[in-house]
Amino acid sequence: MLDSETNSATIADPKVVCRDVSVSYSGKQALFDIDLDIGIHQVTSLIGPSGCGKSTFLRCMNRMNDVIDGCVVTGSISVDGVEILDDEIDAVQLRRRVGMVFQKPNPFPKSIYDNIAYGPRIHGLVRGKDELDEVVQTSLERAGLWEEVKDRLLQPGTGLSGGQQQRLCIARAIAVRPDVILMDEPCSALDPIATARVEELIDELKRSYSIVIVTHSMQQAARVSQRTAFFHLGIVVEVGETEQIFTNPRDERTQGYITGRYG
């Protein structure tokens, strides 16, 4: 779908390779032949107006669309060269490797400790209490939350502030040691200060993980991502280096969107 001039969908060292990905909900097509690569150890942001298919595309990468009735995904998505849309692939194992953070902070109504420990427990990643304690501590440390919550690990995660809850959710996602983290507008429910903390955290995390972030904030995309893809009406209009997209967009629709003329 991309013309040659704007085609930088493929990159040299991809973590996730998506080709001809189409999605339809009960017969209504939402995504049309998306080609996009997600680079290793970098942040890729997906921008575009509401309803353009960014979140749908994001959810294809860990097959979260499987749980929606009537949703059909076609095409090819491979993570480290393994085709994940294949029925043979266990979605549960895939989701361990491709973690997700949601728009609204959604900690389990359990203790902070149990929120983090849940993933490692169900996947059998740890042996014994000591190892689990360690995973909980490292995950919280990496999410920048340890200092704030280390004295109240057994209190409910739902009692934290919105920003803390979202960092708790990020800690929960990294506790199962994924390769890729998908973030669906992770800051849209947060105030600017909490947003800044999460953005710092994303910057930190990209050293160890490949991150895909859906965002409505142009500034956020510009601040945190190295590559940006602009979605519009179910297609990728333009994809490239973030700097290039924001300073020198090739497509006039991209130009229009980032300058705020529509969207």
Binding site: F102, C169, R172, A173
Partner: peptide, 10 residues
């Protein structure tokens, strides 16, 4: 959101 959270960690 609780279902999604649980699915999300696998």
């Amino acid at each position: 959101s609780i279902r999604e959270a649980a699915f999300g960690v696998g």
